[in-house]
Amino acid sequence: MARNIFNQPPRNETESGAPSPTPPKAAKLPGSVGGLRDSLREITANSIRDIEPDQIDMDGLRDRLVLEDSSIDELAESIRKHGQQVPIMVRPSAQPDRYRIIYGRRRLAAIRKVGGTVKAIVRTLDDDASLIAQGQENNLRLDPSFIEKSLFIKEMQESGYKPGVIQDALGLTRQGVSNHRVVIEQLPDGLVQLIGPAHGIGRRQWGDLAALSVKVDLVDIAKEALAALPDDTPSSEKFQAVYSACSSKARSDKKPPNRGLTSVINDENGSSLGTLTIDEKAIALKVTKKDNPEFGQWLEEHAEATLLQLFVQWRNERGSGS
């Protein structure tokens, strides 16, 4: 599911399929010359550069369900008025004069709307370090929703990242990662795309919705429920509408308990002899002694023998008919 949402290339590859570059090892120079060169390299690696947006590839794992939304327009307007206040981070690509995004996808999208260059920190990081930097920076600036983190975790695991890297990227414990993964694995494909990030909706609520998947078709009900909402309905309200519709459907589909079929047995004169109740679990014959005291007494004395006689008769008829 996460791959369909993020639609990103596998780790260790650029959009063109080339592997991530390995930082070249610098030749060591003696004395103060070597130290000066190392210092200059460190300053350059952490300096802020002005880069053309079309030189930056939007690859890697994404941790947002929605990138092109109204918030991008608002951010673009802010940058138009006040300039870019916070740089993005990129790393060199295998192709000359090209870079791969580490974090700052929303800022890059906004600047592409505004026009001009983007301020970026260029760092030579491997895939693990890039992922950790991306996760930690985004958690600090705009905390992803529970379901976005869940999808991000699933994507990282399927891409082969180690548990420790995933935990560091999102600042979660091992149990925290497990809690997210358990929920996302229960949700059917396509449901999260319909609802969206749903900020403010936590693990318990998503877990309750996931539990309904064994009772009703969540995706079909979600499509019907969301079709009745305005297009600009906030994602969290979409979740509530879907959960309410799925819960109602699950309750209505629940079969009422079978209380059994009861019939009155009358004699030839129409007087009641008793009642016969049949359900899925038992057959019950009830004779009220108050209405038929003598018959009730006789039946009490002969009930066991009569039942055995009926059983023998059934067995004989079963045997003769086989």
Rank of each mutant, 00 (worst) to 15 (best):
F6N: 09
P10N: 15
P10T: 04
E13D: 03
T14L: 03
T14S: 11
E15K: 10
G17N: 09
A18K: 09
A18V: 07
A18T: 10
S20K: 14
P21G: 15
T22I: 07
L29N: 01
G34R: 15
L36G: 11
R37L: 15
R41H: 14
E42I: 03
E42A: 15
A45K: 13
S47P: 05
D50H: 14
D50M: 06
D54G: 09
Q55K: 06
I56H: 02
M58E: 03
M58A: 02
L61Q: 09
R62M: 01
D63W: 09
V66G: 08
L67G: 12
S70C: 06
I72K: 04
E77P: 00
S78W: 11
K81D: 12
H82C: 10
Q84V: 00
Q85M: 09
Q85H: 10
Q85D: 12
V86T: 07
P87S: 06
I88M: 01
M89Y: 04
P92I: 08
P92E: 00
A94I: 05
A94S: 14
A94Y: 01
D97T: 07
R100A: 09
I101C: 07
R105V: 08
R112P: 01
V114Y: 00
V114C: 09
I121L: 08
V122R: 09
V122G: 00
D128Y: 10
S130E: 12
S130Q: 06
I132K: 08
G135V: 07
G135L: 00
N139I: 00
R141T: 11
L142D: 09
S145T: 05
F146H: 03
I147W: 13
F152E: 04
E155V: 01
M156F: 06
G160I: 10
Y161S: 01
Y161C: 13
G164H: 12
G164T: 11
V165S: 09
I166C: 00
D168V: 01
G171R: 09
R174S: 15
V177D: 11
V177H: 13
H180I: 02
H180D: 11
I184C: 07
P188V: 02
P188N: 10
G190S: 04
V192S: 15
V192F: 14
L194D: 08
P197E: 03
A198F: 00
H199I: 06
H199N: 11
G200Q: 02
I201Q: 07
G202V: 12
R204D: 15
D208M: 12
L209E: 06
A210T: 11
A211F: 04
L218Y: 12
D220M: 14
K223R: 15
L226P: 02
P230T: 00
S235N: 06
S235C: 05
S236D: 11
F239A: 03
F239W: 14
A241K: 11
V242R: 02
V242F: 08
V242M: 05
S248F: 07
A250H: 13
R251D: 08
S252H: 06
K254I: 01
K254H: 13
N258D: 12
G260M: 02
G260F: 00
N266M: 08
E268S: 06
S271G: 13
L273I: 02
G274S: 05
G274E: 07
D279F: 03
V287I: 07
P293Y: 06
E294Y: 00
G296D: 00
L299E: 04
E301W: 01
L307D: 10
Q309V: 03
Q313L: 11
W314H: 13
R315I: 12
R315C: 03
R318L: 10
S322W: 00
